[in-house]
Simulated scan of single mutants.
Amino acid sequence: MSTKKDKSGPCPCGQPSFEKCCGRFITGGEVPATAELLMRSRYSAFALRDEAYLRATWFPDTLPEEELTSETDVKWIGLDIKKHQHASGSDEATVEFVARFKVGGKAHRLHEISNFVRQPDDSGQARWYYVDGRFPED
């Protein structure tokens, strides 16, 4: 199940335009060129409960079987990208971020360092995939 998003409004990731930011990736029109752009679009997909996009952008070897958007009482309220590391020519990258959300009106934050890999998809086009993440010691 996915939630409809007003294409003329702001992007859930915090940018002014959904259509010009994450919308172009989530709708399948473009492929994120960097791990950071993929991270932003995955955050927006969580906010929109777009299960299909989240599964399509998760590295198959680490993709969990359970539904990713089953928690209906979660409201995503903000994303801060702390650091994006990608060495030139490398097919691996990390993105450190803090995602803020509410459950039952109570605010929470998720601080993660996510690992990404770039490899060809079924059509041969190189694209970034989320692999896994770890929680840094705050």
Results as ranks from 00 to 15, higher is better:
Met1Trp: 08
Ser2Tyr: 13
Ser2Cys: 10
Pro10Val: 10
Pro10Trp: 04
Pro12Asn: 01
Pro12Arg: 01
Gly14Ala: 11
Gln15Cys: 07
Phe18Leu: 08
Glu19Pro: 05
Glu19Trp: 07
Lys20Asn: 14
Cys21Glu: 02
Cys22Glu: 02
Arg24Lys: 15
Arg24His: 04
Phe25Tyr: 15
Glu30Lys: 15
Ala35Leu: 04
Glu36Gly: 01
Leu37Ala: 13
Arg40Met: 07
Tyr43Val: 09
Phe46Cys: 09
Ala47Arg: 00
Ala47His: 02
Ala47Gln: 00
Leu48Asp: 01
Asp50Met: 01
Glu51Arg: 07
Leu54Ile: 14
Trp58Met: 10
Trp58Gln: 04
Phe59Trp: 15
Thr62Asn: 06
Pro64Phe: 09
Glu66Asp: 14
Glu67Lys: 14
Thr69Asp: 05
Glu71Leu: 15
Glu71Gly: 06
Asp73Ser: 13
Val74Tyr: 10
Gly78Ile: 11
Gly78Tyr: 06
Leu79Ile: 11
Lys82Asn: 11
Lys83Ala: 13
Gln85Val: 14
His86Val: 04
His86Asn: 14
His86Gln: 15
Ala87Cys: 08
Ser88Gly: 12
Gly89Asn: 09
Ser90His: 08
Ser90Trp: 02
Ala93Gln: 00
Ala93Lys: 00
Thr94Ser: 11
Glu96Phe: 01
Phe97Glu: 03
Phe97Ala: 06
Phe97Arg: 00
Phe97Gln: 01
Val98Asp: 02
Gly104Cys: 07
Lys106Tyr: 06
Ala107Val: 13
Arg109Trp: 00
Leu110Tyr: 09
Leu110Ile: 06
Ser114Phe: 08
Asn115Phe: 13
Gln119Ile: 10
Gln119Phe: 08
Ser123Gly: 07
Gln125Trp: 00
Ala126Phe: 10
Arg127Ala: 10
Gly133Asp: 03
Gly133Cys: 08
Glu137Val: 14
Glu137His: 13
Asp138His: 12
